[in-house]
Design a protein around this nucleic acid. Structure first.
Lengths: 331, 331
DNA sequence: CTGTTAGCGCGTTCAG
DNA sequence: CTGAACGCGCTAACAG
């Protein structure tokens, strides 16, 4: 059994180095206040004892922990991992640790997580938050907050504007001769969903196309399969799905039903998380989640370090990626 | 501007309730030690002031933070998100917050992260750690540690045994008449890679097949494409890849080269992270990452709460999932 | 059942 | 440039 001994404290180092706690503390935070001599003497002692400043004690004393929290609706949704990764990397550059929270698309869970993290983070970023505006505002009064894909005035936010890409998608379908299309919607509290739905409607109207909206609470492969029957029932010849997962589910179901894509039906996804991996390769709207994650963290850290209270609204545009699931409208 | 006032302390609550700090403290940790009367009196006062126990101060005093850290090589590798999600959910059930770390497949980065998290977590779980055995052992002497897909004696670990599934894959290929196959390996420090490579070799020998190993440090779609030329150069008729991503890259490259799968070449992946989304749908080895994540956390929490020093070696078996990328050996 | 007294380990005045 | 003293907010004995 290896011994799990208790860590050396600042006092032991002080004693070993023949100085006081204060000097040791300074050696680790503002060495320039000490003579080079004492500093190296202290470091030597610290090294020998294996001393590491106690993060918790320091946090209690200073009020800063060097932690931030990132909350997402679903870690396993392929849209988020790259975003998380980018956020991590950015946090790391400034020596922040990141708590990850999974809200399970559930506002209450999200609220609970914020509460749990609350006490030990400098700030948080909520990605695709499912919370109500008032709750978000309320939380933001307690500590710095930045939003991703959620547009609340007065709160720093980075938005991936899928509207531009979705509009291109509708135009693309119109150019292919489609007259009736359906938008398969996503989660209710989702800002992105609202934005996409509106973009589809607007463009369709302008182009004289008929559009119906089919709701589908939980965006995923299986639910994509399930709502396909409803989609077909509308008599539309093309569909734009809230995300690639849903689109992929529809693709699978369509193939199972012997409906060939894109010959008999066109499908476009959103977020481009699948790359060209589906068959046929999915036509979709590009995604900028990596930049979103990185930017959100840059923003947050800037707010934290510079005490800047910025009301930023950072918008990232998207565009259509045409691949193989869209084609001329079936006669 | 909403005011960002300083949080009320235990003292203010005590004063408001006409008791001492101790009682307030107890009301929040061991209410059964107090009379129902005082407890409700205290809660009322706390409620009115909006008091919330200070996590940091509590941690300093008790030495427990209620945090655990989870470190993975690459959040964006589809193998991990489900694992992370499951681990989160399990941590949540016991009110633990989880720090997520991304080591970028880099031992030094992993070490750095462990250090950073070290001071504020009760324990950690390292998934597919790229650290050396000695380092892992060293870290485990400081605080509880559980490993996923890493087999270090004396340290609690949960292993996804892909060997069983890989063996089935080799048999499957043998039954289809293949005589020469290649194993496309994964990251160097990876235990899973070693395990899979050995399983391929062992089974191939038993079945009288010839096998070459091609190395490919970073497992991903693009690198899968790149090594395809080398794979073909071996003259083999089938390949087993370290993971699905690599396999998917190979698929794309093979199609681009006009080599049809599975008619002219068979491919099998590992981890089943893509589902049936590739074309043709990928034959692969099943994955149990969700159970792995959940189990690892259950283990860790058990160790933490019950002070149990368990040398567990939890093994999860896998099996072959036959889909569309394997077929009879080309004449 | 409740109050008193010490710390937990460190940062930060304020003197010198 | 360095030391002494106090406080961060809370828990943990120890008394009553």
């Amino acid at each position: 059994m290896t011994q799990r001994r208790t860590r050396p404290t600042i006092n032991q180092v002080a004693e070993a180095a023949g100085v006081t706690k204060s000097s040791v503390s300074r050696a680790f935070t503002r060495p320039e206040m000490l003579s080079a001599d004492t500093v190296s003497k202290i470091f030597a002692a610290a090294e020998k004892l294996g001393y590491v400043p106690n993060h918790t004690a320091r946090a209690l004393s200073t009020g800063r922990h060097g932690n931030i929290a990132l909350i997402v609706p679903d870690v396993a949704n392929p849209f988020f991992p790259p975003l998380i990764r980018a956020a991590q990397a950015e946090a790391d550059r400034s020596d922040y640790c990141v708590f990850l929270g999974n809200s399970d698309e559930n506002p209450q869970q999200e609220d609970k997580l914020i509460g749990r993290f609350g006490g030990q983070v400098e700030g948080l970023v909520l990605a695709s938050s499912r919370l109500g505006d008032e709750q978000i505002v309320a939380h933001s009064t307690r500590r710095p907050l930045v939003l991703i894909n959620r547009d609340v005035e007065g709160i720093p936010r980075v938005l991936i504007d899928s509207a531009t890409g979705v509009a291109e998608a509708v135009e693309h379908l119109a150019a292919l001769g489609h007259k009736r299309l359906v938008y398969v919607s996503g989660p209710h509290g989702s800002w992105s969903n609202k934005q996409r739905r509106n973009a589809v409607r607007r463009s369709a109207r302008q182009l004289g196309m008929e559009v119906s909206v089919i709701s589908n609470e939980y965006a995923a492969f299986e639910s994509g399969r399930r709502i396909t029957a409803n989609v077909l029932a509308t008599g539309a010849t093309a569909a734009i799905a809230f995300d690639d997962l849903t689109a992929q589910g529809m693709l699978a179901e369509l193939l199972d039903r012997g409906i060939s894509v894109p010959e008999q039906f066109s499908v476009v996804g959103c977020d481009d998380v699948l790359g060209a991996a589906t068959y046929p390769a999915l036509t979709t709207v590009s995604n900028r989640s990596v930049e979103a994650g990185k930017t959100a963290l840059t923003l947050l850290i800037d707010i934290l370090e510079n005490n800047a209270i910025r009301d930023v609204r950072y918008v990232l545009n998207t565009s259509l990626v045409v691949r193989g699931t869209t084609g001329p409208a079936a006669g």
